Amino acid sequence: MYYYLTLIIGYVFKVYQFMIIAYVLMSWVPQMRETSIGQLLERLVEPYLAPFRRFIPPLGFIDISPIVALFALYFAQLGLMSLLRMIFT
């Protein structure tokens, strides 16, 4: 049970990380954000990125908030996995 739960949670976090990366890469081609996939990614990713953008200002033309958001997501995954390990052992 623990193995399958951690596997599913790992996949969910990995998919969301790829969604963030795709959303950031889409910013290089503005027409991509106007597509239905771009709008879907915006609705799913922007609520997570918004707090990071509020506290981390862009450095010129470079927005580092998605990088910080990816690190935070990674540490949240590690914390959740260790919490599950403590519950199931």
Score class of each variant (00 low, 15 high):
A50T: 04
V12Y: 02
L84C: 04
R85E: 02
L78S: 14
I64V: 15
F75D: 10
F71K: 01
Y23W: 07
W28C: 13
L41W: 03
Q77V: 00
V24K: 11
E46I: 13
A69W: 08
P51M: 02
I9E: 04
Y16C: 10
I56C: 12
D63S: 12
F18L: 03
L73H: 08
Y48H: 14
L49N: 08
P30S: 02
P58G: 02
P58Q: 05
L59I: 05
L41E: 02
G38C: 12
Y16W: 08
P51G: 03
Y23F: 13
Y48R: 10
P30T: 04
Y3F: 10
Q31Y: 15
L25H: 00
F13T: 06
Q31K: 15
P30E: 05
P30A: 06
S82V: 11
Q17W: 01
A72M: 10
A22W: 03
E34T: 04
A76Q: 07
L5S: 06
R85W: 00
I56L: 14
S27P: 00
R85L: 00
Q31M: 15
L41T: 07
V29G: 02
S65F: 13
T89G: 14
L44N: 06
F55Q: 12
A69R: 11
S27D: 02
M32T: 13
L83W: 01
I20W: 02
E34H: 08
A76W: 08
Y3M: 05
Y11G: 11
I62F: 11
Y23T: 05
F61Q: 15
L73Y: 05
M86R: 14
M19F: 05
A69D: 13
V15L: 11
L59D: 04
V29E: 03
L40G: 02
L70M: 05
L80M: 14
A50G: 01
Q39A: 10
F18I: 04
Q77N: 08
F88K: 01
I64G: 13
F13S: 09
P58F: 03
L7D: 11
A69C: 13
M26W: 00
L70T: 05
P51C: 00
Y74R: 14
F75C: 10
V45L: 11
L49S: 01
M86N: 14
Y48S: 10
Q39F: 08
Y48W: 13
F52M: 01
P51V: 03
V68M: 07
I20V: 15
M32R: 12
Y23N: 10
S82H: 12
V68I: 12
F18A: 05
T6C: 07
Q31W: 15
E46D: 14
P47K: 06
G10L: 00
M26E: 00
L80E: 10
L7R: 12
S36H: 14
L73T: 12
S82M: 10
E34K: 09
A69L: 09
L25Y: 01
Y74V: 01
S36L: 13
A76H: 08
Y48F: 15
V12D: 03
I8M: 06
P30N: 06
F75K: 13
R43Y: 11
Y3A: 09
A22C: 09
I64C: 15
M1R: 05
G38A: 12
K14D: 09
L73Q: 12
W28Y: 15
L49G: 07
